[in-house]
Computed example of a mutant assay.
Amino acid sequence: MAPCSLLTAGVSLLAKSASVFSCSGSLSRFSRVLPAVYFSPVKYLTAEASGPPKRPLNGYMRYMMQQKPFVVRQNPEIKPVDVIRKIAQQWRTLSPDQKQPFQEAFLRAREQFKVDLQRYQAQLSPAQLQQQAQDKRQRMAKRKAVRKKRELTSLGKPKRPRSSFNIFMSEHFAEARGVNTQMKLKSLMEDWSNLMSHQKKVYTQLAEDDKIRYKNEMKSWEDNMVDIGREDLIREHTLSARKRQATKAAKAKKVVKKSKSKAVKKAGAARKTAATGRKTAKSSSTKTLSKLPKKT
Rank of each mutant, 00 (worst) to 15 (best):
C23I: 12
S40Q: 12
A88R: 12
Y63F: 15
G59H: 04
R160V: 05
M218E: 00
P56E: 04
R29M: 05
V11I: 15
K215S: 05
D191N: 10
I228K: 11
T288A: 15
A2P: 00
P80V: 03
D191H: 07
R160S: 08
K211I: 10
M61A: 13
E190A: 06
K149E: 13
K291E: 08
F113P: 00
L152G: 06
Y60L: 10
S163Y: 05
S50I: 06
E208S: 08
Q118S: 12
Y120C: 08
C4W: 03
Y203N: 02
R160C: 00
K148M: 10
A9K: 09
V255F: 04
H237K: 12
A2T: 09
I212N: 06
S5E: 02
L129I: 15
K287W: 08
S164H: 01
K287Y: 09
Q182I: 14
S163H: 00
Q100E: 15
S261Q: 08
Y63R: 13
Q138V: 07
K265E: 14
Q128W: 01
K16P: 00
S187I: 05
A270S: 04
K43V: 14
M64N: 09
G25D: 07
K79R: 05
K43T: 13
T238N: 12
S197G: 03
E171R: 12
R62S: 13
A250P: 01
K215V: 02
T93V: 02
P53G: 07
W192P: 06
S26P: 00
Y63D: 10
A269K: 13
S26V: 07
A88V: 04
K211N: 12
A18N: 01
K257V: 02
